[in-house]
Amino acid sequence: MPSAEDALAQAHEKENSIRVACLAFDRALSRMRQNLNLPHSKEAWSASFVTRLQFLNKEHRRRIKNDVQALSTRLRQDFGQRTAGCDAKSRLDVQVQAVMDAYADAEQLMVKCEELYTSRVGEKTLAVADRVLLRRAMPRLRDELQRIVQHKEEIQAIMAQWGVYFQLLASEEELSTLLEKLRQHKFTKTALENKAIPVFQRIIDMYTERDAIVFESSRLGLEHEANWLAQANRV
């Protein structure tokens, strides 16, 4: 049979382990209150959270609306106002296509140049000075053509990634549709309360249960300690 001191030490250890476990919960609760900027009163948590989330959502929608409208205005300034049958996206497409056509022309010219060079060298109708000049120029021309290919691929990649957003910002109709969808994403108080109240109520219930567990562990610890000491005195 363990001594009274050993029994009391074990009881104290159990009680302390419960307090340590509750301390982790308390720290998590404190971090939650700080992150969500909640008041001290637990009863006000839901209302405070809903009010703050509504404000943040409103600011988020307002900021997006202002940014999108500013970008749209900038695009129209850079690419000109819409005219009959031609908007900013159409003008951009024309410019991109002009780049693609220029690349195709450069590629064809390079092929033609190489064919003529090979033909004239084979026919021995090319002057030595011209042959030397072309032999030195051809590698540079190929390098330049390769750089043009890289620019072409970059433009194609950019258009594939950002073309849809350019279209959205350049089109008044699509921009209006976007802003309307943004307006519809407004958080209503009722919807937020329906989600927030059960969660916070569960946290409050856990907090209450935590207090009950600590209280009960302390009560049992004192009760066991008194019983052990009483038994030890009788012995």
Rank of each mutant, 00 (worst) to 15 (best):
D101N: 15
A102C: 04
Y103L: 00
Y103Q: 00
Y103V: 00
Y103H: 01
D105T: 15
D105G: 14
E107Y: 03
Q108M: 13
Q108P: 08
Q108T: 14
L109I: 09
M110P: 06
K112D: 15
C113K: 14
E115M: 10
T118K: 11
S119Y: 13
R120N: 11
R120W: 11
V121L: 14
K124E: 12
T125I: 10
L126T: 04
V128N: 05
A129S: 11
R131H: 11
V132I: 11
L133Q: 08
L134E: 06
L134T: 04
R136G: 10
M138N: 01
M138A: 02
P139F: 08
P139D: 08
P139Y: 02
P139W: 06
R140I: 04
R140H: 03
L141Y: 01
L141V: 04
L145Q: 03
L145H: 02
R147Q: 01
I148M: 03
I148K: 00
Q150T: 03
Q150G: 01
H151V: 11
E153K: 00
I155H: 01
I155D: 00
I155L: 06
I155E: 00
Q156E: 08
Q156A: 09
A157K: 11
I158T: 03
I158A: 01
M159N: 07
M159D: 04
A160G: 07
W162Q: 04
G163E: 00
G163K: 00
V164K: 10
F166C: 08
Q167H: 05
L168Y: 04
L168M: 08
A170S: 09
S171Y: 08
S171R: 07
S176A: 05
T177F: 14
L178Q: 04
E180D: 14
L182Y: 04
L182G: 02
R183E: 13
Q184L: 15
Q184A: 15
H185W: 15
H185Y: 15
F187P: 02
F187D: 10
K189V: 15
T190S: 08
A191F: 07
L192S: 04
L192E: 07
N194L: 15
N194S: 12
N194T: 12
K195W: 13
A196F: 02
V199H: 02
F200Y: 03
Q201K: 13
Q201T: 13
R202I: 11
I204E: 05
I204P: 01
D205P: 10
D205I: 12
Y207M: 12
Y207G: 06
Y207H: 15
Y207A: 14
T208S: 12
E209F: 10
D211Q: 08
D211M: 09
A212H: 05
I213E: 11
V214W: 05
V214S: 06
F215H: 13
S217N: 03
S217C: 03
L220E: 05
L220P: 04
L220Y: 05
L222D: 11
L222R: 11
L222Q: 12
E223W: 12
H224Y: 12
H224T: 06
H224V: 05
N227G: 05
W228Y: 06
W228N: 01
W228V: 08
Q231W: 12
Q231C: 10
N233P: 01
